[in-house]
Amino acid sequence: MTRSGDAVSHPPFPLAGYAFGAAGAMLFASKGIIIKLAYAEGIDPETLLALRMAFSLPFYLAVGAFALLRLRGMGEPLPSGRLVVQSMLVGALGYWLASYLDFAGLQYTSASFSRLILFTYPIYVALFGALLFGQPIRPKAMLAFALAYGGLALIFLQNVTAMGSDVVKGSVLVTLAAISFALYQLCARSLLQRVGSALFTCIAMISASIMAIGQFAVLRPVEALMVSPHGLMLAVSVAIGATVLPTFLMNAALKRISAQANSMISTVSPVATMVLAVIFLGESASPAELAGAVLVMASIGWFTLSDARRR
Rank of each mutant, 00 (worst) to 15 (best):
M1G: 05
T2S: 05
A7E: 15
P12C: 08
P14K: 09
A19L: 13
F20R: 02
G24T: 03
A29V: 04
Y39I: 04
Y39F: 09
E41H: 06
D44E: 01
M53P: 02
F55M: 05
F55H: 00
L68G: 03
R70I: 02
E76I: 09
S80Y: 07
Q86H: 14
L101W: 14
S112R: 12
F113I: 10
R115P: 11
L116W: 05
L127S: 02
K140M: 04
A146I: 07
N159I: 11
T161Y: 00
M163I: 03
G170L: 05
S171I: 13
V174R: 07
A178M: 10
Q185S: 13
S190L: 13
Q193E: 11
I203K: 00
A208D: 07
S209D: 10
M211F: 15
A212Y: 05
A217Y: 06
P221K: 14
L225I: 09
S237A: 09
A242E: 01
L245W: 08
F248V: 04
A253H: 06
I257A: 12
A261S: 15
N262F: 01
S263T: 01
V268H: 03
T273C: 00
G282H: 06
G292A: 03
A293M: 14
V296S: 12
M297V: 15
S299G: 06
W302F: 12
A308Q: 08
